[in-house]
């Protein structure tokens, strides 16, 4: 069967299979990451990155399979769109988590100077405290 297919087609077939499998692999990593990682910030990592790469590879496979036709343009547009919007969406989610006062789980930092900017802290984190207050009735919105 396969001998009848020309060489170029076989290469394309192989490339599509590789791209789809790689896409599935990275999406799987992203799914595992979202389920396993400890907090929202860490989960946002895999959600934005492994998933974007997985989606990108799968879409590239689709574009390769469609070849030179009009639908390929849409696939490439979709690819670009996913690559621009996905990290922005992850940033929006992480930022909203920071705004509503969720503190990330951090391991002990290995480096030296953590407390240098301690005096800058309160003003930076004021939205956090506002978010906490909002639920207990501090109506500062007037």
């Amino acid at each position: 069967m396969i001998d009848a297919i020309p060489m170029g087609e076989q290469l394309r077939f192989a490339a599509i299979v590789i791209l789809v499998v790689a896409g599935l692999f990275f999406t799987f990593v992203s799914a595992v990451g979202v389920l396993r990682l400890p907090d929202i910030y860490a989960r946002a990592h895999t959600a934005s990155q492994a998933d974007t790469l997985g989606a990108g590879l799968a879409l590239a496979a689709v574009a390769l399979a469609l070849g030179w036709q009009h639908a390929t343009v849409y696939t490439v547009l979709l690819l670009f769109f996913v690559f621009i919007t996905n990290p922005t969406a992850a940033h929006a989610i992480a930022r909203s988590a920071a705004e509503s006062g969720i503190t990330p789980v951090t391991s002990e930092p290995t480096a030296t100077d953590g407390g240098e900017r301690a005096d800058d802290g309160p003003a930076d984190s004021s939205p956090n405290t506002d978010g906490e207050d909002g639920s207990t009735g501090g109506g500062g919105s007037a």
Binding site: T88, H91, A92, R95, E99, S126, P127, D130, G140, S141
Partner: peptide, 11 residues
């Protein structure tokens, strides 16, 4: 000014 929310520049 107390509860100023600045829009995200990235978004």
């Amino acid at each position: 000014h107390g509860d100023t929310y600045t829009e995200s520049q990235v978004i």
